[in-house]
Design a protein around this nucleic acid. Sequence first.
DNA 1: AATGAATGAGGGTTCATTCAT
DNA 2: AATGAATGAACCCTCATTCAT
Lengths: 216, 216, 216, 216
Amino acid sequence: MNAAAIALVREEEPRLRADALRNRERIVTAAREMFVEHGAEVPLDEVARRAGVGNATLYRHFADRGELVHRVTLYVTLRIAEEAEAALAEESDGYEALCRFVHSAVDERIGALCPLLTSESKHRAEQTEARERLERSVEALMASARDCGRLRTDIELGDLMVAITQLTRPLPHSGCVDFGRFVHRHLQLFLDGLHTPARSRLPGAAVTLEDLRQRP
Amino acid sequence: MNAAAIALVREEEPRLRADALRNRERIVTAAREMFVEHGAEVPLDEVARRAGVGNATLYRHFADRGELVHRVTLYVTLRIAEEAEAALAEESDGYEALCRFVHSAVDERIGALCPLLTSESKHRAEQTEARERLERSVEALMASARDCGRLRTDIELGDLMVAITQLTRPLPHSGCVDFGRFVHRHLQLFLDGLHTPARSRLPGAAVTLEDLRQRP
Amino acid sequence: MNAAAIALVREEEPRLRADALRNRERIVTAAREMFVEHGAEVPLDEVARRAGVGNATLYRHFADRGELVHRVTLYVTLRIAEEAEAALAEESDGYEALCRFVHSAVDERIGALCPLLTSESKHRAEQTEARERLERSVEALMASARDCGRLRTDIELGDLMVAITQLTRPLPHSGCVDFGRFVHRHLQLFLDGLHTPARSRLPGAAVTLEDLRQRP
Amino acid sequence: MNAAAIALVREEEPRLRADALRNRERIVTAAREMFVEHGAEVPLDEVARRAGVGNATLYRHFADRGELVHRVTLYVTLRIAEEAEAALAEESDGYEALCRFVHSAVDERIGALCPLLTSESKHRAEQTEARERLERSVEALMASARDCGRLRTDIELGDLMVAITQLTRPLPHSGCVDFGRFVHRHLQLFLDGLHTPARSRLPGAAVTLEDLRQRP
DNA sequence: AATGAATGAGGGTTCATTCAT
DNA sequence: AATGAATGAACCCTCATTCAT
């Protein structure tokens, strides 16, 4: 529907039939939910069942697990980027915008994004593009918050992304229906720590997204 | 060596031969490291290899994966409890003690504790005892920090435990040699958010450990 | 082909594809032969190999060993029940019908039926139904033979079923190609012992199938 | 104590210490009981536990499972041979002697003797000797019963041995405390079939023990 | 295009047998 | 001599992926 969804579904391939498109969306949605609820190791047959398609259909759309993860990541990344852009556009105060973004990122399941942080060899192009779009947006949010004088200056994008991803990851084995109950509290505590004036001297160096790229 | 290690290795069972005891310790150590590095799903054969023993030796000591997880959890819990007790005993300022505890908990691999939070059906007695000991210690730390007027009053034990566990969890697939580089930064930011005066009004209610008990 | 085969293969589940059906039959056939030849503990991988399918195919059709045993038992039970019914319908003399049934039961591999005698927890409904059908048929055969005045009156169904099952069980480790050579002799000797006039006073009480139900 | 026990325990080896001898007897006894109750596949560690010794002690006495089976078989064979000899010596009527023998063989757990029938490559000498002793005794019983005119003449030793072994084998999975309830009934029915006058013409040829030797 | 079915490789666990105290 | 402990091979079962309808 929106940019994110559309961008996700297509590559450079020929048009998909309407029903194929619908299946594709269902699979990504199901996968995102199950990754979030049960971790990234869920059997793909379960994902297919939840999506209401046969397992082979899943493989028709996504060559292997890696590609499905990639697509989910891309989807989430783009949705979150949109959130960041919206927050930036609609909020007058930079720090408020940043807070809004952080809390909304939970609802977009940023906790499913671990693979983003760890990278996947394939599909680098699309990933990179989406990631950079997100980076630019969040950088802008952070810059804006800094400009307001409300964001401490010793942190970088990587610090923020890792921390909110970690804080919103599902607890393993949880099924954890009400995990959402805590998450916003902890995010808020973390955000409070980001505010000026800085209450501590941080160890190590600010973390950029570059620092997170892995060499497998 | 210390109480934790000793408590871990023994139950009420008959004595172990010296070499068996050494193997047992090796296995727990290897398991803790691998859970931390690669998540709780690592092949037990790998754990055995890392410990330098045959796979069946692992099973002689731990009837199944659940029991190994249980032992590791217990070990880590007790070590961390000792850290908490030491911080409480040795630091004059309550908030400083809390900070010391939080940072040292990382080094004790509190990130391997997730299974504790999600409950494990068996061995409830030992787990409960260790958990309660940890709870009491950290409660005391928080109380002390509150008494100093330096810890905000709208958070509870569960908030702290979940957040530091999440922040210190290994990134999946990471191998993440240098993950330690970030962790202390993010913990510190979180701790800064805990300091008085509170910079926000937190959503939801303070989280107690009771809130984390799962019913499977 | 006949009722037994059909009843075995289906439950209330959706249709099977033709090739899947063929595989299912092959697996049951292979399992029956191997249970008979090598006992109920044969590696299922061997059963799969003998059936000419991959091991996972076996597990797709039968969730675990217990279910395979169940299916084989059911298959054999129903085939034997059909034999009993045919003998009853086609033979004029009751005792002759009984003898015909006993000898034909060997060819249906009644020796694979031990699990029937020892019970299997699951699938009780189908098992019970098949067992009761067999019981009724063999009871009728025995009644008919008794009516002819040719079957001693101090034995019950359980006596007959246990004895013929035992006499036709495979010798362990045998591979026993020519075991069939003896079996009919020993069955015949046993049958001769069943004939009137009774040549002895039997110890204990007549055994019903109820007596064979186990409580695990 | 009696010849059988003594013969069993020794080979041509040097004397055993008294406690070693006691252990050896305990192991054989435990193995015989467990083979009978739970089949020939019981874990040897269980046998050792039941015997009240460590597992390695079992292996000190019996190099591998095969040898333990061999010893148990030998023990049982000799005990049964003694029974046969006693029946022959003490009963005046040949057929009565045969019946007494058959029923007493159950109590000696002849059902655990399957290995006798299938043979084991090793230890042929001792096995052969014991088997031949048993053969001679039972042959003599059968001859005596035939001489009385009470045993049909179209059966041989092999027929008898196989049938009584089969009829007395433990039902699998049974634990079958009260299996003994049926066994004597079925043996008696079989014996009734052996009596003159023969009530049928048996298929195939009489089975000698030679027919039972396997070539593995 | 969609799907049910098939499969091989891999992990968990047991057990016969060997090793070290 | 006796034993607790160690081990690798084998088996059960699952799952990612491929094949055939």
